[in-house]
Design a protein around this nucleic acid. Structure first.
Lengths: 213, 213
DNA sequence: ATTTTCTTTGACCATGCGGTCAGCGTCACG
DNA sequence: CGTGACGCTGACCGCATGGTCAAAGAAAAT
């Protein structure tokens, strides 16, 4: 009843055992690995259990179903994913804020490619499990930040660009390096670092886009 | 031998019946629909058969396995997908060629979102079935066109940008509108046309990026 | 030391799904 | 209009997979 999806057992009474903490973390990490690489239907409980170093029934002792594990992951993800955008400061320097946002998003692609792919998988399939959150939380946040950016543009502090598509472009470009990493690496060859180069390229791209000259 | 992957039976002797043509087309179209929406493992033969208006055994009369259907789709896809890049003319006007490429790619996202998502699914999972083609054909083509673009940059006819990442950025931005269409539409609301707006935005973005001022 | 709660497991079940097969219809062509 | 090749299907098989359960094994609490 009062049992959040990310926690296995009713934590109302006793708080949480050390073993519980360790195992739920292991499970979520293993699930992230498997779900992000195989998609929801492609992943199997056996794979996740093995990856987590548990038996399948033991895994199901901590989470009631495959669906629940997936939801626990997605539930936490959207917040993490949007944190950089939330941090965009209306009082800050327009170019610095937008460039900084792009930077942080690129860093997330580099540091958290599994999360990026998990998210991509979900959206690709039409976001059956995140639709609600996307239409509410995400849309609200983007509307709010888009208004800020529009104000900056109207004040002439950055170029006149559609703020929504500016945000989309940051998403598209940064996530591409995580989601399509295999393709990017295949094309660049083994001796080039995609993320380092992307940083330079995207700096230039957005500098030129936002310049007011 | 002369049997393309999209054809089911050995057509060495008799060419192809009308029924064969109709049904293989129906199957591939249905499979594109289902695979692009559910991924390889998420799709079932029953779904594809139903979508194609056939029974499952009948479907398997035309293709030997689920895998074969998927391969037939992917096999044809890469060529279609890369055609716009192939068309980039070294003798043409640099800005016109690159902007035109971006345009054609965006049109493809609009006209062929299912193909885009099929491809995205494949790359996301690490391209288990396309790896070879990507490391050979695709890499070769990109190397070749990147060299062209680099020459243009060195001649001062466009800005000095990394040609590889320029190509990546075109892929990322155009495919984003197909692959993440659900998210884009949720954020923009029902009254805005993502693709029309994207055309304007991307025109501006790449104009500014390539400008030599 | 004993009880109680938490943790783990082997064995098992039901269902979904890819794929097969024997046989029945149907079409095209001489 | 007959005959062979083509097209189609219901019933079936075996395996993978999500999930259950009773009972055994550790920890914690007393």
């Amino acid at each position: 009843m009062n049992d959040p999806l990310s926690a296995p057992r009713d934590p109302a009474a006793r708080p949480q055992t050390r073993i519980q903490a360790r195992n739920t973390r292991a499970i979520l990490d293993a699930a992230l690995e498997v779900f992000s690489a195989q998609g929801f239907r492609g992943a199997t409980l056996d794979q996740i259990a093995t990856e987590a170093g548990l038996s399948k029934p033991n895994l199901l002792y901590y989470f009631p179903s495959k669906e629940a594990i997936h939801l626990a992951l997605l539930g936490g993800l959207l917040d993490v994913w949007l944190a950089p955008l939330r941090a965009l400061d209306p009082e800050g320097d327009p170019r610095g804020e937008i460039m900084g946002y792009m930077r942080r998003k690129l860093d997330m692609s580099r540091q958290m490619p599994r999360e990026s792919r998990l998210f991509a998988n979900e959206i690709l399939q039409g976001a059956p499990r995140l639709k609600g959150l996307i239409e509410d939380d995400l849309k609200t946040l983007v509307d709010e930040k888009a208004a800020v950016i529009r104000r900056w543009a109207d004040q002439g502090r950055i170029a006149q660009v559609d703020p929504y598509h500016l945000i989309f472009s940051i998403w598209a470009l940064t996530q591409h390096y995580a989601d399509f990493e295999m393709q990017v690496r295949a094309v660049l060859g083994p001796d080039r670092d995609p993320f380092d180069e992307a940083g330079i390229f995207l700096d230039m791209m957005f500098s030129r886009l936002l310049a007011t000259d």
